[in-house]
Structure formats: structure tokens, C-alpha cells
Amino acid sequence: MDSRSAILGRILAAAQAGGRDEGRAAADVAARLASPPAHPTPGRVKGLTALGLIELFTKMATAVGAGVERVADPARVPHAVADYLSGLGHGLQVRIAPDPWLRAIPWDRRPSLSVAFGRAQAGDQVGVTTALAGVAETGTLVIPSGSDQATSLLFLPRIHIVILPLHHIVGTYEEAWHGLAIRQQARGLGMPRSVNMVTGPSRTADIEQTSLPHAHGPGRVQIILVGEPDPATA
């Protein structure tokens, strides 16, 4: 017997010995997959306005060592990126995800910035991406892969800058999953190859249980929020 049949056979035998109703098991599983039960979600986001969610997102992301700043419109993004890097005494070469919205940002407004698009290269120091969602419950960025997003940009460079439209901030992970489902459906695609949840810069506590930033992933995560809160929901 091949290993697959052997393992599945053993599991089935144990289930049957335990009195599982084989007439219903397959249907139960299909039903649960089709409409999973809702689990408890953090009360900390309940009842928050859009402004409240932005505040919570900022607080949680800052607490894990990310930087958060706000600009009023996309035209300010090149300045925010350049000023942030200059403030660190860092070079102004950035690698940007091939995302249409990021491409549409007028990067040439700040001529000293040197921009290139695509996946991260070995020597790249700064990766710039957007995110599908910024989740307020823990200050987490949800970033799916796709033709417009290179996963390597999240991990290879020393600095990760995230340009996040304000209306992408949501309360819970569940809302981010909902947003992902809508986006993939609109594109006629299923689950993307990779969905990355990023919460602050990389870290390790493997030496003497002391938490240190900048392990293998970026040592800095800077989130630039773009836009004005919607007055109707704020």
C-alpha cells in the first residue's frame, strides 16, 4: 500500500472506531469549508470610527518599532520618502514594487531620488511597496504577491517603506481577508502565491533572550499613510 493510502486509511479506521457517521462526514466537512463559523474578534476595534482605526493602527505599529507618518496626497510621497532616508543619512536609491498606483506617484518631483521598479536585487538597500490592508488590531500590514508586488522587497533590503492609502486601514484580520477575496475575484484569480503579514521590523531574541531589531529581514519599517480621513465616517 502506498504511504498516502496507509496514512489516510489509519485515520479513517480511527474515526470509524470512534463512531464517526460516515454518511455525514464528507458533507459536514464540505459545509464547514463553504461557510466557516465566525470566531471571536478583538473588542479593541469594535465601534471605532475610521479616525479611531487610524489612531489604533498607528499606536500598534509604533509599539512594535515601525515608523508611521502621514501625507495629504500622493504628490507628497516622494518628499516623505527622500526626507525619511536623508534623515537617516541614507542613500536615496529605492526599489519600488511594480504596482500601477505606486508607478503613478510623481517620483520625479524629488529629482535626487533614484527609483527603479521590480523585484529586489542583492544589493538593494530600500524596498518600497504598498499594502492591501493595514490592520488596526495589531498594526499589521497585509501584502499579497501578484504581478504588481514582489515578495523579495519585503525581506531583502535593509529598509522597507510602505505607502499605504488611508482607506486601506481596517479593524481586523478578517476584514483584510475579505478585501483579499474581493481583489482576487476582481482579477479572476484564486489565493495568491504569497500573503505576507508584516508587523514591524525583523527581530530576534535568540541571544540571551534579549530582543534585538534587524535580524534577517529589514531593520526598519516606515509606513507613510496617504490621504485625508473621510469626513463622512470620521
Partner: peptide, 22 residues
Amino acid sequence: GQEITAYTTFSTGPRRADDPDG
């Protein structure tokens, strides 16, 4: 005791035709 770790990654299959990496 972290609320969530720095990285949580969901991997589903290999690189798609138009993915830039993976």
C-alpha cells in the same frame, strides 16, 4: 507574549506566470 510575530506568511503554490519573484 507578542501580539503577533513580525512575519506571518501564507504560501500557496509556486510562482505564478506573471509574479516577479518566488
